[in-house]
């Protein structure tokens, strides 16, 4: 979900940059040096995982997984996504320098919200509730990002209202799939490596 260069106006770009800077400041401050390799390598892992193309009916969509990233990294989601998107811009020229702020914020905020609202449910809860939390996390974070992208586009002018609506509608099936995959991943991580979700590992 990238907004490419040249679409948005100055105020929106500036607002996106300011919000992302604030998120980065919080994220970096909360992240100690001993978590550095973890955040960076997990960010790279998510980048690779987002290359996975999942069939949805006749089309294939790549996973986004910003909800799970948020769940695992908390506020560090901001720096993690910033780094991934910045390098994507420099290496593949997908999204550029001026849109980096808006794009990072649109992807990272829903992830952080998932962490704040659903984190506890995904860690504790019984057998089923964590799966529900996982589903909501994937479903809502993709939905939230699509909504933020649509809102950003809508500021670019009336011409963009059709595109903005399409962005939201096109992401509805992706939201469901992301929900299912994220729920399944939460279940998997709880069984295989609960510490990753911030749970105390029982040996």
């Amino acid at each position: 979900m990238h907004i490419s260069e040249g679409v948005l106006g100055g105020p929106v770009l500036a607002a996106g940059a300011a919000l992302t800077l604030a998120g980065l400041a919080v994220g970096l401050k909360k992240m100690d040096f001993d978590r550095l390799p973890q955040v960076a390598i997990m960010s790279a892992a998510f980048f690779v995982a987002s290359l996975v193309n999942v069939p949805i009916g006749p089309v294939k969509e790549h996973l986004i997984l910003n909800g799970l990233l948020g769940l695992l990294l908390g506020w560090a989601t901001f720096p993690a996504l910033f780094v991934a998107l910045a390098l994507q811009g420099v290496l593949f020229q997908f999204g550029g320098l001026t849109t980096l702020g808006v794009n990072t914020f649109n992807m990272a905020l829903p992830g952080v919200l998932c962490y704040l609202l659903l984190g506890r449910l995904a860690r504790n809860g019984g057998r089923r509730l964590p799966l529900l939390a996982g589903f909501l996390c994937g479903f809502l974070s993709v939905g939230g990002s699509a909504l933020l992208v649509a809102l950003s586009l809508a500021t670019a002018g009336e011409e963009f209202l059709v595109v903005a609506r399409l962005v939201v509608v096109a992401h509805i099936p992706v939201m469901v799939i992301e929900g299912v995959v994220t729920a399944s991943m939460v279940g998997f991580l709880r069984r295989v490596r609960p510490a990753m979700l911030g749970m105390v590992q029982q040996s």
Binding site: M42, A45, M196
Partner: peptide, 21 residues
């Protein structure tokens, strides 16, 4: 399919986590 992809991506994350450690 979705479950399989979830487990593969999950495994990738677990291995990355261990590698980071």
């Amino acid at each position: 399919t979705y479950r399989t992809y979830a487990h593969v991506s999950g495994m990738l994350l677990v291995r990355s986590y261990d590698r980071a450690e």
